[in-house]
Design a protein around this nucleic acid. Sequence first.
DNA 1: AACGATTGCTTAAACGATTAAGCAAGGGGC
DNA 2: GCCCCTTGCTTAATCGTTTAAGCAATCGTT
Lengths: 345, 345
Amino acid sequence: MNKKKASLKDIAQKAGVSTALVSYVLNGKEKESRVGEEIAARVRQIAIDLNYQPNYLAKSLRSGRTRTLGLIIADISNPFFANIARIVEDEAKKNDYTVIIGSSDEDADKSWDLINVLINRQVDGFIIVSSEHTEEQIQYLKNRNIAFVLLDRYFPDIDTDYVALDNYQAAYQAGMHLVEGGYQHVGFVAYRSQLFHMRERIRGYVDALGGSEAGYCAEWLTEVEFTNVDLEVRAGIDLMLAAEKPIDALIFATYRLAISGLKYINELGLNVPDDLAIVSFGQAEAFDLYYCPITYLQQPMEALGKTSVDVLINKLKDPQQERKQILMEANLIARNSSKIKVLVD
Amino acid sequence: MNKKKASLKDIAQKAGVSTALVSYVLNGKEKESRVGEEIAARVRQIAIDLNYQPNYLAKSLRSGRTRTLGLIIADISNPFFANIARIVEDEAKKNDYTVIIGSSDEDADKSWDLINVLINRQVDGFIIVSSEHTEEQIQYLKNRNIAFVLLDRYFPDIDTDYVALDNYQAAYQAGMHLVEGGYQHVGFVAYRSQLFHMRERIRGYVDALGGSEAGYCAEWLTEVEFTNVDLEVRAGIDLMLAAEKPIDALIFATYRLAISGLKYINELGLNVPDDLAIVSFGQAEAFDLYYCPITYLQQPMEALGKTSVDVLINKLKDPQQERKQILMEANLIARNSSKIKVLVD
DNA sequence: AACGATTGCTTAAACGATTAAGCAAGGGGC
DNA sequence: GCCCCTTGCTTAATCGTTTAAGCAATCGTT
């Protein structure tokens, strides 16, 4: 009981050979290194007997590679990120990589901390869901030649690998779906953020309404702070309902916003979709459970997660890889919350 | 651009001293090691200039400690575990530890794999939410003298540290709440599992109904497989509704079961709580959003997560620590889904 | 003036692996 | 019999740190 871990040295001693030979055998380099068959067999057996497990620290120190990836997300307790994390974990494991996850809380400082901690832990590369104002960090990684791929969000002005959603088309699709369903006054709740994916969602929504000249009205757009979601969502919904042309439909730009908004809509006693139709980005059990199932933009989570890992690992294998900039399409799942409007004449 | 990382050696060379001295200075051991003030200042400045970041691999290899904890949970994409993971991550970071999370899918083999991978990665200790049939793994960790603490679930027959819920009292409380609310035929949906926490929940429920002699009826208990939740939950609910004494209230033993069950209850067109009152373990946004807010047993997530980290870290500091076996109480949050039954005479 | 104590630094081993280079013995060809 | 090639192994450096031990030089005491 309580045996210390066996090292190469222990095996070497027991077999009466050098550690080098043991290393060759256990790494399957017996052929190249001309190790005798008998001694190789003996070494292998002793390794099994001693339950030898290589020390990754030593391996990594020597090789300069840890087979570890850093995954930086906003918050692991958010279902969207938790799902992504799970997919990334699984895909990484398939390739013999381990993942270390860090939550940035959409905070640039925390994100810096995480990046530094993970660099010190010698991760081989990063998968990053960028927060606002982290352009500098991305540039730093580029300059230091550290491998990374941006996931779900990217900066159009910085040339990087990324795997993300085509947010413009997704939002456009959501808007058109409501417009075609007969809704005239479609609101949109977004985060107040300069992040490109958020701007794209807003742009897609505005374009779907035909722009300012046609159907879009500035009062219908609410932008809320990350740090004060519940209160600002309430205020925004109040405003949009009290607008000159009150909204009859509402799109939420993220899952969190939708949860917050739907709670308030329940409180107000509004009926979905008769009083207010709803479409949301993201998917979640909560949407299925709602009395009126929520129409949502299904994101290709599996593909996003897997692809980001694959892109990163390929880059680690061959740093000269050409840039991979991948956009995926969201899939609108239409349900009762946005059913075709019955016109009351 | 693309500077290689600076090592102690680089600093030493630039300062014209030995690496040992640099190490002393940067670790604040100048006093004990009698390093001159001037040279210390110079070394520190050079470290800053070169943006020196210590290599954790080397540190860890030398010290035998990685300041990394392994967290094994069933599934990071399950909100309960995602929440726990976030709390553990934060508490670990406060203590300068990094966490590596692994999902076992309630599968003993995957759990073994994770434990081995993490041991090879030299984690200092484990926080484990045990799956069924993993007693052997726990015993293995004990025998190898590897630090760990069980979280949320534990084995009464194995003497270990643990931090968990008092599941008996929680389930008893849920049962009594419904009984006192006038519900006579209370059903219970649990996992078919020998895991102690699940048996305790069932025991608490049965006792609340007064046991078999009094109010409890065996037809009201449904146990479903981890691997086939949706189908078996449906079948179970069908049976409980078709029983000789059909249920008028239902307790779900976990969040996942509740989500699955509520979907079906919606499909059946049953009204909560008039046709069927509901109480569930766990908390989730979905419960708030339901047309009739769901009564739930609020688990002290924050305390569970933090305490488990603290117990583990204390054990790492002083392996002779006495056993910590901590049970916490759940808090029943009563809402409309279990409101006092209006008797129809 | 001689001795021990203190100060300020260096040397070198160690953690556990990988791997280029080297060495000795045996075999084959001429 | 000599040379070279192959076979089968070892030696030793290396990755970046920590830390016990050692070594000069200076200081204070008597």
